[in-house]
Computed example of a mutant assay.
Amino acid sequence: MTTINQDSAVTLHFTIKLKDGSVADSTHNLGKPAKFVIGDGSLSENFEQCLIGMTAGQSQAIELAADDAFGQPNPDNIHHMDRAKFIGESEVEVGTIMAFSGPDGMEIPGIITEIVGDSVTVDFNHPLAGQDVIFDVEILSVE
């Protein structure tokens, strides 16, 4: 039985829940599990430490404080844009999540948090930044 350690390739299903029990994200919704290598930077170090030692077939609920999950909101990730940039967008309203082109051409999701006159405030922080979360993980395979 292979145990998760540094450099293991891990395939797992996870469900991210908030403290109130509501589900924020789940690989079950996508219909396919997540796969990553321990130490590749896709997960926080503290989260990886919680996975080390687990084996395929194991399930566990891992509670993470905001700093260990998606970090704290960064004020530099909040941008004010001219409403004219949104011409043709059907719904520019508070709470709308839109995809914007980042400097590297990758799409970045931003959530509209405020509209004042011609100024639209868009928050590019991860929607779960600043939140304590619970990861329900189910380890499918370890290579």
Rank of each mutant, 00 (worst) to 15 (best):
M1P: 00
T2D: 13
T3Y: 12
I4D: 00
I4V: 04
S8W: 08
S8R: 09
S8N: 10
S8M: 10
V10K: 03
V10S: 08
V10G: 08
L12C: 07
H13M: 03
T15H: 04
T15Y: 05
L18S: 09
K19Q: 12
D20W: 10
V23P: 02
D25N: 14
D25K: 12
D25P: 02
S26H: 10
S26T: 14
T27Y: 05
T27I: 05
H28N: 05
N29A: 11
N29H: 12
N29K: 15
G31F: 09
K32D: 07
A34R: 13
K35V: 08
F36Q: 02
G39H: 07
D40G: 01
L43E: 01
S44H: 11
E45R: 13
F47M: 10
F47P: 01
E48R: 08
Q49C: 06
C50M: 08
L51C: 05
I52D: 04
G53K: 11
M54T: 02
T55F: 08
G57C: 10
G57V: 07
G57R: 09
Q58E: 15
Q58T: 07
Q58Y: 07
Q60K: 14
I62Q: 02
E63T: 11
E63D: 13
A65Y: 14
D67P: 03
A69K: 09
A69F: 05
F70G: 02
G71F: 03
G71I: 04
G71S: 13
D76P: 06
N77D: 10
H79R: 14
H80Y: 12
D82P: 07
D82A: 08
D82F: 01
D82Q: 08
D82I: 04
R83N: 01
A84Q: 12
A84I: 01
A84K: 11
G88L: 06
E89G: 01
S90N: 12
E91N: 14
E91I: 06
V92F: 07
E93T: 15
E93K: 14
E93L: 12
V94I: 14
V94E: 12
G95V: 08
G95P: 08
G95F: 11
T96Q: 14
A99D: 13
F100P: 02
F100I: 02
S101D: 11
G102N: 14
P103S: 12
G105L: 11
M106Q: 14
P109A: 15
G110N: 09
I111V: 13
I112C: 01
T113A: 06
T113Q: 07
T113F: 00
T113P: 01
E114M: 07
I115R: 06
I115V: 14
V116M: 10
V116N: 13
G117R: 11
D118W: 02
D118S: 13
S119G: 04
T121E: 02
F124I: 06
N125P: 00
H126M: 06
A129N: 01
G130S: 09
Q131P: 04
D132S: 09
F135M: 01
I139R: 00
S141P: 03
S141V: 08
V142W: 02
E143W: 01
